[in-house]
């Protein structure tokens, strides 16, 4: 039995390596593209930033009209955490020490505040460990063991980091997602003729960036999930010690490597706010005061958005994202 288990694992590992599952996306892609110099603008956040900020449009309008287009990279990614961005950025600097020199890092502050998590908060979402694990080194792992996470969480991350080079481990998420996503889509197609037609079927105006699902079923699921997670009660206001958050650490890291941080107030639907703030909302005034004390800019546009601008109730539509991107560039130039 033991020989069978060992043989199976070795064979699977060899097979997985043969499949070539190396990924060159996200931060590794930015490092790969930064041949002579780093980007001018780096967008750091979740899929809300990925949907709302059109990097090509921003590149053309970021600088004065007579200047060359800026180099913009949008690293907004669904289910990414501040810690994942921090770890990946540390890794990227390890590859290219000058990557952030002169770069403006646009940090997502959806609804007016960035995520208030400290090191004891969430480092990665279930099923999304690939956004964190490849960038965790021994020092970060030691830090994780010093946090309030449970023994199980600590063991799990340690095993994941220890098996980073194992092709089978890297392959597993991809195979599982592939089976579930593709299988579900096949069944969805079979069921589609039976589904009643609704007015919402036309609203699929979303950018396929940062893991945002643009298919009808995906949009419906995000909508349903957002509506289910919300509460109609007014959110309580949470006091956050912003100096103790990972955002503060990210700001210090960027600044210590020659970059500067600008917060971007990415629009949020009311439904998404109800879900996000179900357990309390960080006090925007307190965040604003902290940012002012740190001399950090918060960019906000004067555009107004309503629920119809968010096809899945979480992500801004492509057309309104373009409006937002242009207004953001204007706000930057006029700041």
């Amino acid at each position: 039995m033991l020989a069978l288990i060992a043989g199976t694992l070795v064979a699977s590992e060899v097979g997985a390596r043969g499949w070539g599952v190396e990924s060159r996306a996200w931060y590794p892609a930015v490092v790969g593209r930064a041949s002579d110099r780093g980007p001018d603008v780096l967008v750091v956040g979740t899929s809300q930033s990925a949907a709302a900020i059109d990097e090509d449009l921003l590149a053309r309008h970021w600088s004065a009209p007579d200047s060359a287009a800026a180099r913009v990279e949008n690293l907004g990614q669904g289910f990414s955490t501040t810690m994942a961005h921090l770890c990946a950025m540390r890794w990227a600097i390890g590859q290219r020490p000058d990557l952030l020199r002169g770069t403006t890092v646009l940090l997502e502050a959806a609804g007016g505040t960035p995520p208030p998590d400290g090191a004891d908060g969430r480092w990665y979402y279930p099923g999304m460990s690939h956004l964190l694990v490849p960038y965790v080194d021994a020092g970060l792992l030691e830090r994780y063991w010093g946090t309030d996470h449970t023994l199980e969480e600590k063991l799990e991350l340690t095993v994941r980091v220890a098996t980073t080079d194992c092709a089978l481990a890297r392959l597993s998420d991809r195979v599982r997602d592939g089976i579930v996503t593709n299988g579900s889509r096949v069944v969805e197609k079979v069921l589609a003729p039976l589904a009643p037609v609704t007015d919402e079927d036309a609203e699929t105006d979303l950018r396929a960036k940062g893991g945002v699902r643009t298919d009808r079923a995906g949009i419906d699921r995000v909508r349903a999930h957002t509506l289910a997670g919300g509460t109609d009660a007014a959110p309580s206001v949470r006091d956050v010690d912003w100096d103790a958050t990972l955002v503060a650490e990210l700001v210090e890291f960027v600044e210590s490597h020659g970059g500067n941080v600008v917060f971007v107030e990415v629009p949020m639907s009311r439904a998404a706010q109800r879900t996000s703030y179900a357990s309390g909302r960080p006090d925007p005034a307190r965040f604003k005061a902290w940012a002012e004390r740190r001399r950090l800019t918060i960019l906000r546009t004067h555009l107004r958005f309503d629920e119809s601008d968010f096809p899945d109730l979480v992500h801004l539509s492509a057309s309104r994202g373009a409006d937002f991107t242009l207004a953001l560039a204007d706000a930057w130039r006029e700041r």
Partner: peptide, 14 residues
Amino acid sequence: VPDALSGPLLFHVL
């Protein structure tokens, strides 16, 4: 009739 979750559910069950 099916809705957004019917496809993933049917796939998972099958």
